Simulated scan of single mutants.
Amino acid sequence: MNKIYYIITLCIFIISCGKEDTLAPTGARDDYFTISPDATDPESVLRRNFYETNGVHLLFNDTLRHEQRGTNADGTPYWFTEIIDLGYSMTSLTSGLKFNYLQGQTIKETGIDFAENQILSHLGSQIRPYSILLAGQIYTYNRDQNTYKYYDFYNGMRCLAISCDKIPTMSEDEIYTFRQSILLDIASNKIKNLESSVFTEFYSFCSEYYGEYYSDLGISRPTGDDLYAYGFISSYYSSFPSRSNDVTAFTQALFNTKEQEFKEKYANFPVIIQKYNIIKNIVMDMGFKF
Rank of each mutant, 00 (worst) to 15 (best):
T63F: 08
T200L: 07
S92Y: 13
V198G: 02
G156S: 06
F269Q: 05
F33E: 00
S235F: 02
N54G: 01
F240C: 03
P168Q: 10
I112T: 05
A249F: 14
Y237Q: 09
L86Y: 01
Y214M: 07
Q252I: 09
L123A: 03
L10D: 10
H57G: 02
N2T: 14
G124C: 08
I182E: 02
A28L: 11
T94C: 09
C164I: 02
M286Y: 02
T34G: 04
T40N: 07
D74I: 08
S207H: 12
F199Y: 13
I162E: 01
Q103Y: 10
A115M: 07
E116K: 00
L23W: 14
L86C: 06
Q103F: 12
A115F: 05
T177N: 08
R128F: 02
G55S: 12
F240N: 06
N61Y: 09
K289P: 00
N2H: 14
Y176G: 05
L123H: 01
L59E: 03
R29L: 09
C11E: 07
N72D: 04
R48T: 03
L102K: 08
A187L: 10
K3H: 13
S163V: 04
L227M: 13
C206E: 06
G104K: 02
D144Y: 15
I278G: 12
Y150N: 12
F269I: 04
E20K: 14
P270G: 06
S16D: 07
N146S: 13
I35F: 07
I219S: 02
N155H: 08
Y266T: 05
A161H: 01
L217I: 06
T106G: 00
I191R: 00
